[in-house]
Design a protein around this nucleic acid. Structure first.
Lengths: 148, 148
DNA sequence: TATTGTTATACTCTATAACTATA
DNA sequence: TATAGTTATAGAGTATAACAATA
């Protein structure tokens, strides 16, 4: 099994999931990526835009573009962070929370489908392997690694 | 381990790989997705645009857009398929093959990095799990499945 | 009738670079 | 000096819909 086959299977799995997610989220006029933002914000605490970007794997410019769209729709709000006035805390609005709950419910079948062919330990294994993959690919690795 | 955590780890792994691939391919002025097209075409036989789309997980309009860009660069050529004159066979040009070989070589380190933290059986397991994931998400599953 | 590919069009995500303001 | 976010800009990938040619 080659690294290239791994790359391709990763691509095909991600794109399939992304399309199916898009199809569900389109009901509310948002995209799969925007749903990822809502989901990240729904997990309790508020985040700065940078922190949000780190969580969802998008850079600050991309994050801003998505937030502007979501703000326009009334799903998120950004308030100045008192402690560090360069930063802005991002949070779901009441409407954002409500919309997210609805979309979460409507995507329930999809999440079930996703793990339907996997035993519980297989899901755990898969997540673990994917995370170690992501760690291997962190940009800081690239330069000739020499640590004493 | 929840389905949502699986979805997120899949997203983060794919995006990390995509970015790293983009960085390598930028040397030749192409994108990670265009490299995927070249790789698919390099595997020997020529494909129709539809077949190509199926392999790389993109729809026919997207495929066309990418092929137009690659054709403009002189990396691929499309010739009428005699047997079915609606279709067009896509193939790498000489320059396309040469460029692909160079890029393949330059992305060697990246592929090594990708599997560096994985034992060989783990890579095989991962590919197998990802494929079964993709299969679970095939769009035909969605409607209330009732087959006699 | 169904399929392959094209045309026209639009939108989101993505990224770079230069900038402001805060730290 | 470095960081958080913005502005301006551009490009790629994506998708939908209507269409032509062919099967």
């Amino acid at each position: 099994m080659t690294a290239h086959e791994l790359a391709m299977s990763l691509r095909l799995a991600y794109l399939a999931l992304h399309r199916r997610t898009d199809a569900v989220m389109a009901q509310a006029g948002i995209t799969a990526d925007q749903f990822v933002v809502l989901a990240a914000l729904s997990e309790g605490m508020t985040l700065t835009q940078s922190e949000l970007g780190e969580r969802i794997g998008s850079d600050r410019n991309t994050v801003r573009a998505m937030l502007v769209l979501l703000e326009r729709r009334g799903f998120v709000e950004r308030t100045p962070q008192p402690l560090d006035r360069r930063a802005r805390r991002v949070a779901l609005t009441k409407e954002g929370r409500s919309t997210f709950r609805t979309l979460w419910r409507k995507s329930d079948t999809l999440r079930q489908e996703l793990v339907t062919s996997l035993a519980p330990e297989q899901t755990a294994t898969l997540v673990q392997l994917l995370r170690s993959l992501t760690a291997s690919l962190s940009p800081a690795d690239t330069p000739a690694t020499s640590s004493p």
